[in-house]
Every structure is written in C-alpha cells, then in structure tokens.
Amino acid sequence: MTATAIEANGLGLGYGRRGHRALDGCSFRVPAGRVCALAGPNGAGKSSLLALAAGLLRPTGGTLRVLDGIPSDARGSTSRAEGLRGRIAYVAQDKPLYPQLTIGETLRLGHELNRGRWDAALAERIVEEGGGLDPAARIRSLSGGQRTRVALALALAKRPELMLLDEPMADLDPLARHRLTAALMTEAADHGTTIVISSHILSELEATCDYVLLLDGGRVRLAGETEDLISAHTLLTGPVADLPDHTVVESRTTGRQLTALVRGSSAVGGGWQTAQPSLEELLMAHLRSPDAPPMLTPSAEVATA
C-alpha cells in the first residue's frame, strides 16, 4: 500500500456543553501524493477536519495520524511534533496574517520560520504575479484576494509535504484563481505534494482533484479516487418503472420520466439510457439523499488491525 498522508480512525470532535459534534466517527485514509477535494455543505465539518490535521485542535474521540505523526501533539511542542509542523502548510479560511507587517516582511518572516526549506524565489514569483503588489505595502491595506495570494505564497514557499487549504480560492478573481491553481498543481507535479483543498465550487474540483472526501453532518459519505467513485455510479433515465436491482442513491420522477443515480456500472438494458455522472452530479445526489449508504474505495479504507 502507498504511503499515507492522513488517516482518521473513528475521529470525533465535540464542543459546547450540549456536546454538539462537528465530526462524528470519521474513518478514512488519504494516500500521499494525491490532490484531494474536501467537499460538503456548510457545517459539514470540513474546516474542523483541516484544523485537526494542522494540529490546531485536538480530537475528542478516535485518532488522527498525519504523515505518520500525531498533529495535536505539536501543541505540547515535543521535538518530533515540531518536525511534523514544519512539513505541513495550513491556510485557514480567514487567512490570518500580521496586518501591521508589509508583504516583504511577511515573506522574510516565512523565511526565518522555515529555515532550510524556504523557497524565496517561488514566494516572490507568486506575489509578483499579482501585478502591482508592492512589497512595501502593509498586509492591512490589501484586499481579501491579495491577502489570499500572500497566504498561498507563504504556504507554497514552505515546500510542505502536505498542504491543507480551507476554501483558498473563494475571494480570487478568475485569472488569479487559474494562476494560483496552476501554481498548486505545478507544485504537486514537481514534488508529489499531497494537497487537501476544501471548496464549494464543485465544477472546479473535477479538473484538479484526483481524490475526493465528501463530508456531511460530521460523517464521511464518500471517499476515494474521483475516477473510481464516478465509474462506480451510473445515471439512468427511462420511463417510470421499477428500477433494476441496484443500490439507488437518488431517484426523481418528472411526468413519465424517471431519472436515477445508482451504484454499479453493469449494463442495465430494458429501455434505460445510461450515462456516467459528473463529479458534481455525484456529490449533489449524495447531499440530497442523506440516507444513501457511504462508499469508500479500497485505498480510502482504514486497515483494521
């Protein structure tokens, strides 16, 4: 089996007196070298999972291993966990940076804090691509999109083995989005970096992500290779009739026509038109059907000892 970037076993995160659970019994694996989409509706637990993987939160149940270490131990700053933190880059949704520093000072800080791995040329190139970003400009004077660019420059120049990106592209214009995605993909091509990226823009994930983790209500709904998950499902259209013997994820009737997303790829016959769903269709169908059973491909399954 290939090396593992993230492995969760019964992972839970509760907070508040009522014991609300942001994550509940999550078990999955993300192999190293993947670009993994972290999808799910608001409140699904995406940000919680990323913060746990970055070691900013401690699980309240189960275990989480990242690059063969325990990320939450980094808070106790044992030397091993410190080492782990150096190999991970985490960009939180609100892109926390020091507002009083200039861009140039921010990059120098990145350099100082990441001695030995920092790629200064890459950081400068990504900031320069922003067009007209003055290194002497203070972070507080930047727009949301410009701050995102600086945050991603910091994350990329750190040359991490694992990048955890929480809705990184939300406030970027289309050109910046394209260029920064290209920079991320180039990093993955050059160094085999594992990237986990949460996003609501499902159509964009399809071209960039070869792995998917779908969370809903704190639980894992789908996990595995994008392609394998897609080919394990079929979209059926036909006259209203009993569906053939398949696990039905979702079905809808419009007049005389029935449309259904089913598990299985075997030929159906009997007047059914079949098509392969897009990633977006697959994820949406699962979100509309909370009762559909979860599905994990073999590489996403946690090996039980």
Binding site: T181, M185, T186, A188
Partner: peptide, 15 residues
C-alpha cells in the same frame, strides 16, 4: 511535459 500542461491549464498532473 505534465508540468508544462499543468502550468498552462491548472489541471491535475496525474490526469
């Protein structure tokens, strides 16, 4: 190369 394609199109290199 995969890198050249990825740089221009922002798609996944494995693709």
């Amino acid at each position: 190369t995969a890198r050249e394609v990825v740089e221009a199109t922002a798609i996944n290199p494995n693709t």
